[in-house]
Design a protein around this nucleic acid. Structure first.
Lengths: 294, 294
DNA sequence: GATAGAAAATAGTTTAAACCTATTGAGCGA
DNA sequence: TCGCTCAATAGGTTTAAACTATTTTCTATC
């Protein structure tokens, strides 16, 4: 059983004339006769009634015609699907993102614009803490990561691309003494209780605060060490437990009683990266990477 | 694109090893390598990642695998369908029957038993007057006819088979003078008004009554000539317009005020035939013919 | 009824591609 | 470094599909 034979069958069923059908198939009439005979032998009965004047389908032939049309449709679909898949227009991309990334403008922009241009690619989102993203990428659990991490260029198994650099803001209760200020400098934080997110699992906040701390190390800062999420930090701020230094995208989280004031006069900032495996095979992931990089 | 290639793909996708897959396919490893390469070139990308230690599917390969499995399922279905159709287990049979036939025991028996044994054959019933059945058969409007007709053996384009011979009964109002009798003879009808169905279109009643009349031609019978259906004859009988001579299956029609009395002492009878085209192509029709004849 | 024409089937030859054997090359483990 | 496994490559062989030429069958027309 062969697609070529089925194609011959289909053409003959349409033309109902061996000579014309053979011409359309760019073969010669006896070749078509032989192939149709082969097909009929394989199925165990006649598909056409041949009188010397006309050819017509048997009832079985009619049934087969419908099925064969379907079969060719499926074959066409298969080819198109494969080609779409090779072009990265089809497939799944598992995207890992850290909690802060979810509030950046580039992240939602990437996802939305890609989805608009590649509607058949399924994007599966996972919130994954930054250091875990590296493990998840190498273990094949996610295909693309979005996080603020340092030293990525040192890992030969990963490719990274800088996608955003953000200054810091200071989150505090609205009745905090500093609340009226339009902007803050290092000096202003000198005697404040600063809430820092710290966790062995999650390096992002460590990274950025360490980064920041380096720039304000001259100052004598009390800090409040605490495990928890981005939101739990804001809860602590709202509860008057201290102030928090955070990348500015966090501003879009409107917590009651909490205000954000830019931290000026420092070159400290948070850099966000896209990360993928250096040896990536999936065309969809490459399409995503190239599309968001263009 | 060829089913053989797709089969190779399927086997390799299952084995993930060129040597083993080739062995299962009863070909040699380089042949398999070449065919997989051809397939990949045709689709425009790689379906497998080959390291010298292991073979695995690409993401596109995974997608194709599902589609190809479906394709093979459909191919199997096509073959099975074709073979079922050749055996007459699949298809349509358009059955024409005259009104009286609907009340015979053989008719419902044929249909029911065949349908039980050939559940996938669609039987389409048409009530067709007897002479029309011959036209409908020759015009390809129906495939099998059931009727009482004479001279069928003279038509070389048709095959017929006798399926039932029934004596006559006399239908009359229950208050008719003859109503008390257990059976009737020709003599008894001598002075009765007999309702006869007559139509150029429909020969069945003409046939049977002519047949009957021949056997009682010695008697002086008034008859009431009237176009109409089987039921309209019974209506006339119920209205006291006369008595009617009918094949005994009509007895199963219980009309109020109408009783049936056997017409004995005559060899006159109605013969019912199955009819089909002599040159019938449809295996389902042959299956029906053979099944009901066995 | 004979004859010409049309269309599918048959016979024999040619060609193409699928397959086979033998070998090479690459990667991994001892 | 050697040896082993496994896929790729090279070159010859076989099979089957296609071609050309011819026959057969049926129909339409004279």
């Amino acid at each position: 059983m062969d697609f070529k034979r089925l194609k011959y069958f289909l053409t003959l069923a349409e033309e109902l004339h061996f000579g014309r059908a053979a011409k359309r198939l760019n073969i010669v009439q006896p070749a078509l006769s032989a192939q149709i005979r082969n097909l009929e032998e394989e199925l165990g009965g006649l598909l056409f009634v041949r009188t010397s004047r006309q050819v017509e389908l048997t009832s079985t032939g009619e049934l087969c015609l419908q099925q064969v049309r379907q079969l060719f449709q499926q074959l066409t679909d298969l080819k198109e699907m494969a080609q779409a898949s090779f072009k990265g227009e089809l497939g799944k991309i598992r995207v890992g993102f850290s909690s802060i990334v979810a509030f950046t403008d580039f992240f939602s922009g990437h996802i939305k614009r890609f989805q608009d241009n590649y509607p058949k690619v399924e994007i599966i989102m996972h919130e994954v803490p930054p250091l875990y993203q590296i493990k998840a990428l190498l273990a094949g659990k996610i295909d693309v990561g979005y996080a603020s991490l340092l030293g990525l260029e040192k890992n030969p198994d990963l490719s990274a691309r800088l996608v955003g650099v953000y200054p810091f803001v200071v989150a505090m209760r609205k009745d905090h003494p500093l609340a009226g200020r339009g902007k803050l400098a290092h000096n202003d934080l000198k005697d404040e209780k600063i809430i820092i997110y710290s966790s062995e699992d999650n390096d992002e906040f460590n990274t950025l605060t360490t980064h920041l701390m380096r720039s304000i190390e001259d100052y004598n800062v009390d800090y409040f060490d605490r495990r928890g999420s981005l939101l739990s930090m804001l809860t602590l701020v709202a509860a008057g437990q201290g102030i928090a230094i955070m990348p500015c995208p966090v501003q879009s989280i409107k917590a009651s009683d909490v205000i954000y004031i830019p931290l000026a006069e420092t070159e400290a900032s948070t850099s966000f990266f896209m990360i993928r495996r250096a040896q990536e095979a999936s065309p969809a992931v490459h399409a995503f990477w190239d599309f968001t990089g263009a």
